[in-house]
C-alpha cells in the first residue's frame, strides 16, 4: 500500500508542506516508524524528536491529521486513511520542522 505523508516543515514564518510517498506492507506500522522510514530512505534532513518509542516519554508528540498525539503510539490503521498530515505542536516556537521549544 502506498502512503502519502505531508510534513509541515521549516522554521517559524517559513513553513511549507513537503510530501513523501512510502510503500507500506503492514497497516499496523506506527506513524513514528513511517517518519523514520522517510528519514532513512528519502530525506535525512527532516528533523523530529523521538526517544523511548513505547508511548512513555512523550518526545514524539506532534499533530497527526489534526489531532495532537504520540507518533509512536499511533498506527496507520488507527487513522483509517493512507494520506497523513503531520505538523509540529501548535502555539510553540518552532526550532525546525517538527521540533518545537
Amino acid at each position: 500500500m502506498k502512503v502519502k505523508i505531508h510534513v509541515r516543515r521549516g522554521a517559524a514564518g517559513r513553513q511549507y508542506y513537503q510530501t513523501y510517498e512510502v510503500e507500506v506492507e503492514d497497516p499496523r506500522i506506527t506513524v513514528l516508524d513511517l517518519l523514520i522510514k522517510v528519514r532513512e530512505d528519502l530525506d535525512g534532513t527532516l528533523s523530529m524528536r523521538y526517544a523511548c518509542r513505547m508511548g512513555v516519554c512523550g518526545a514524539c508528540a506532534m499533530v497527526i491529521n489534526g489531532v495532537p498525539r504520540l507518533a509512536c503510539a499511533t498506527k496507520l490503521s488507527d487513522l483509517g486513511t493512507s494520506e497523513i498530515f503531520v505538523g509540529p505542536l501548535p502555539n510553540r516556537n518552532i526550532i525546525k520542522d517538527l521540533v518545537t521549544d
Binding site: A11, G44, T45, L46, M48, I95, K96, D97
Partner: peptide, 12 residues
C-alpha cells in the same frame, strides 16, 4: 555525506 546543510537541529 551529511545532506542537511544547516546547523540547527541537524540530526544527520
Amino acid at each position: 555525506r551529511i545532506s542537511d546543510g544547516g546547523r540547527i537541529y541537524n540530526m544527520e
